[in-house]
Structure formats: C-alpha cells, structure tokens
C-alpha cells in the first residue's frame, strides 16, 4: 500500500532565497504527523511547497500520484485541504459563505448543506455566527472557521499550520479533540505544524523535526517524547 503523502528531496525558494534544502518524509494513510521546528525553520514553507504555493523542486506524491508540478487549485481538488498560516479567511464574506467555499471544489452541491450542518455540530459557535461577516469573528472563532472550511472539502489530507495560534488553552484542547475525532471517524490524514510540541506529540503518530530547511529527525511520536534533543528543544524539560 502506498503512502498517503510522500515528499522526496523537496526544495523551495522565495525569489532567489532557498528555504528548503531537500525535505523528505512520508505519511501512512489515515495517520497524524507533526512537523516541529524552530521559528523560521521552514515549516510553513514545507506546507506551501506541498500544495504548490511556492517555487519548488523535488517529488511530492499523494497516494502514489505525483502532484509536484500541479497548480494549487488542482491539488486541492484531489482532496488536500490546507489551513494556511494566518488562517486565510475571506474576511468580507459571511461565516456560512466561507463554509460554502470550503466545499466549492467538491462539485457535489447536494451534500453541501448537510456538511455545513455537520460543521455546526463540531463548532456550535459558528452556527450562532452564520450570517456574520467573517472579519468580525473573534480570533478563536476565525480559527474554528478555518478548520471547518478545510473540512468542508472532505479532504483525505489536512494540512494545518499552527491551529492553536492565539487560542485559549481550553479551546486548543477542544480543537485537538475534534481533530482526533475527525481522524478516527473520517480517516483523514493530518499533517500538523504546531508550536505547542507537547500537545502535538500527544496527538501525532509520527514526528518530523525540521531544522533550517532539512528534516533532521523522523520517528514515531511515542519514542520522540523520550528523545533528549526533542525534549530539550521543544518540550522544555
């Protein structure tokens, strides 16, 4: 059985500056992986490179199919949902319109209404705010909206860039619970970039440690918790 996602010698540039220098890793279907690394290590860039948002070289395979040269929108249409750095909310549109857009690429209009309701089930707060302009939602509400919007795609792979950013601890815990549920119920693979390494390690099956554009350590989350380097740099004990 082929890997859900496979990156081989991935390099990426912003203008003339190379930021990724050969990132390679692979994720098993239905698994949760987390990408850890210091600020500026290239985590956000890795997610961008995976869905063709920056100039890249190297191989990317989704369920064995090469997606390296594809346009972002075509990659999304293959079932890769990306909650980008900064959430990517359509601020002038309403909450519900944002959700409708999340399902835009699926084509199946009939399931849309049901799926929106399902998201309201996960995030009841969004239902109360359904007709409100998304730009006026609170930071936490916008984060929920971003995740819900990504889930509207019914993705097979979900890329999350710091979903806990700026959220209260309780809310973070709730969101991670939802991620776990979605992973278990819908078999969605999740690649998570997270500053809160302790939480990420708890959720993830696999860990990749990124340092200045290279994967330096890769392994099962359970063993990583005991890895000295990881512990010292990311867990702080």
């Amino acid at each position: 059985m082929s890997a859900l996602l496979e990156a081989g010698q991935l390099e990426a540039w912003y203008g003339a500056t190379q930021v990724l220098h050969g990132v390679s890793f692979s994720m098993a279907p239905g698994s949760i992986a987390t990408l850890l690394g210091a600020n500026g290590a290239g985590k956000t860039t890795t997610l961008r490179a995976l869905c063709g948002m920056v100039r890249t070289r190297g191989a990317v395979r989704l369920d064995g199919q090469s997606i390296a040269a594809m346009a972002t929108e075509d990659i999304v249409r293959l079932g890769v949902a990306h909650v980008p750095d900064g959430r990517g909310t359509f601020l002038d549109l309403t909450t519900e319109e944002n959700l409708r857009l999340g399902g835009y690429a699926r084509g199946n209009r009939r399931e849309l209404a049901g799926d929106i309701e399902r998201m309201y089930g996960y995030f009841p707060r969004l239902k109360e705010r359904r007709a409100q302009q998304a730009g006026t939602l609170s930071g936490g509400e916008q984060q929920m909206l971003a995740i819900a919007r990504a889930l509207m795609l019914r993705p097979r792979l979900l890329l999350l860039d710091e979903p806990s950013f700026g959220l209260a601890p309780l809310l973070v815990a709730a969101i991670f619970d939802i991620l776990r549920t979605i992973n278990a119920r819908e078999k969605v693979g999740i690649l998570l970039v997270e500053q809160n390494a302790a939480l990420a390690l708890e959720l993830a099956d696999q860990v990749f440690l990124l340092e200045t554009g290279r994967i330096v350590i890769a392994g099962a989350a359970a063993t990583m918790r005991d890895n000295d380097a990881v512990r010292r740099s990311y867990l702080g004990y």
Binding site: C51, M53, A71, V76, G88, F90, D92, E97, Y104
Partner: peptide, 19 residues
C-alpha cells in the same frame, strides 16, 4: 461566490480549489 472570493483573497481562493 467563488468570483467574489477570488477577487478578495486570491491565495485563499486557490486553497479552496477556485481557478
């Protein structure tokens, strides 16, 4: 809706699969 979204935020629009 997709056209409005693309006009507002082309990067995010691509991320929901809008051409």
């Amino acid at each position: 809706l997709a056209m409005r979204a693309a006009a507002q935020n082309p990067v995010s629009a691509r991320l929901v699969g809008i051409r």
